[in-house]
Design a protein around this nucleic acid. Sequence first.
RNA 1: GGGGAGUUAGUUCAGCUGGUUAGAACGCCGGCCUGUCACGCCGGAGGUCAGGGGUUCAAGUCCCCUACUCCUCGCCA
Length: 605
Amino acid sequence: MAVRFISEVKRTHTCGELSAKDIGKEVVLFGWVHNRRDHGGAVFIDLRDREGLTQVVFEPGISKETHELAGSLRLEYCVGIQGKVVSRGHQVNPKLKTGEIEVRATELTIFNRSEPTPFPIEDRIDTSEEKRLQYRYLDLRRAPLQRSIIARSRANQITRTYLTEHGFLELETPFMGKYTPGGARNFLVPSRLNPGKFYALAESPQLYKQLFMVSGFDRYFQIVRCFRDEDLRLDRQPEFTQIDLEMSFVSQEDVFAVIEGLIQRLWKELLGVDVPIPFPRMDYDESMARYGNDKPDLRFGLEHVVLTDLIARHGEAGGVPLMYEAVKNKGIVKAMVIPADKPLSRAETDKLEEYVKGMGAAGLGRAKVNESGEWTQSPFSKTITPALRTAINEAVKAKPGDLILFQFGREAMVHTVMANLRVHLAKKLGLIPEYGSGGVWKFLWVVNPPLFEYDEDAKAWVAAHHAFTRPHDDSLPYLESDPGRVKCWRYDVVLNGFELGGGSIRLHDPKVQAQVFRALGISDEEARNKFGFLLDALKYGAPPHGGIALGMDRLVMLLTGAESLRDVVAFPKTQKGTDLMTGAPGEVDERQLREVYVKSTPPAK
RNA sequence: GGGGAGUUAGUUCAGCUGGUUAGAACGCCGGCCUGUCACGCCGGAGGUCAGGGGUUCAAGUCCCCUACUCCUCGCCA
């Protein structure tokens, strides 16, 4: 007379909660067979659910029938058991939370058998990502992924609670909107009802949330999916989630305070870590100079030193023609010091050179500093003047035994190469772990960036963020005369070298807006065409407003120490944007295409 | 679009300067086992060496192309 699990006998506990104080209780557990140890006589299984593991023992003396059935159990069978919690006596398993007890089973039912899984369901990942993504539902059974996904759920919960407490309304915006130029490439959705026309999937709710401010909702937030058809990276997915918010009647500092409070709460509740606030602030220009990008990892030094002016001052006479040439061509020169106590072998430096060449560098200049400050192992040592050498040594604060690395040429290239080199070296030298925080959380606001960037290809100024960012008042005179000098109320929040989020105070003055468009070379007509509805909206008493969006996926990735963004997304895409489990994107038949008035012309092989 | 790494049993890997029948561990199947917790012992099955082409007396190994996965520059907040 087997018990009827589920319909009559309900689960009493999870596999992670039984302990010595439950000894003697009659319990029912449901879960998966995580491991089995069959001694012929006694059969042990570790039963797993999302909360943990509990050892279950089947003995012929307790129930011959149940024990026999237990002998047929295999890994990942889904089962229910009933039995009594007993002490393990002195045979405690200290590795398990439930290791003081075990359940002596009287009843067992096999809900479903399992074929041998294509890879083992265990904590350690040593299966190719390809296999893991193909059988994502099995990969998600693994404890580290379960922890990430559960942490993500809690982060969502905490965010909603916090923002609601702070007067924010959770409002929804359309995914399918009108294509607007600029920014990321959009995914397009053909319209069956409007032949030849397309929706664009929202790359962010940017414009809608500003319209909410115009409507007077005052404080908006949304945990929202965004879509961008760009190349992927370790920390980028084509669809990703943002904690998006917008506030009326605020300064930059007001936005910072809300975000700092949210992050503080998330870190406290999820990790028990006290994050000090306010976060430090750093000027964009300073970040570029010292770290080569606008998302510096402040957990370690290896800062850059800009030598451009120094090289220019010494000119041709300095004896380093390559560097001088770079400066003459409007390039820059940067250096970085590898301290003497972290020596690199010749082979290792050669490898670094290969590494930087992969990013577009022509090479990697180096100089080893000896006791008297002279340079060895350096292509510059023969020709450089002692004066310039001394000046550089001083500028980079080089000590005997240090290795100076140089990079010079086009500004963007030098920054990129040096920024990546800095992080690469930090990992190599053991200053930071390969991934994860190492328990160190360095938050930072990067502020006061330029409003415009010069697009070399288009030979024109383009908006660095978007065209609705408010310039600093004292920059207004340069809007037309010297656009590169215009700073703006834009900000990024950075954690350990990752951009967690960014936003801006928006432009709500139509006059200044018109000036910005002019600087961008956008005609009134063009502006009207592209952003007409927003420009119109700003005419009807739009409040001053600003906002920010945090990358939820990245936030959880950093919070949980995950190696990749893919580990905190339940069903992620590969680097080519495919889903190895479902096979998306897939082909559709001719009839479906005709229905939406689309003709497909893939490139010939 | 560019650069780099990789692809060998179900899984993780080994396979040297090209040379007989491609190995190991785990998993799987069969048998034994009442205190294991990486259980143990005995036996067994399991391979399109990613795909295609080439060089060679002979290719997992050398060359070329393609596909896929990952990292990265460009791109993208």
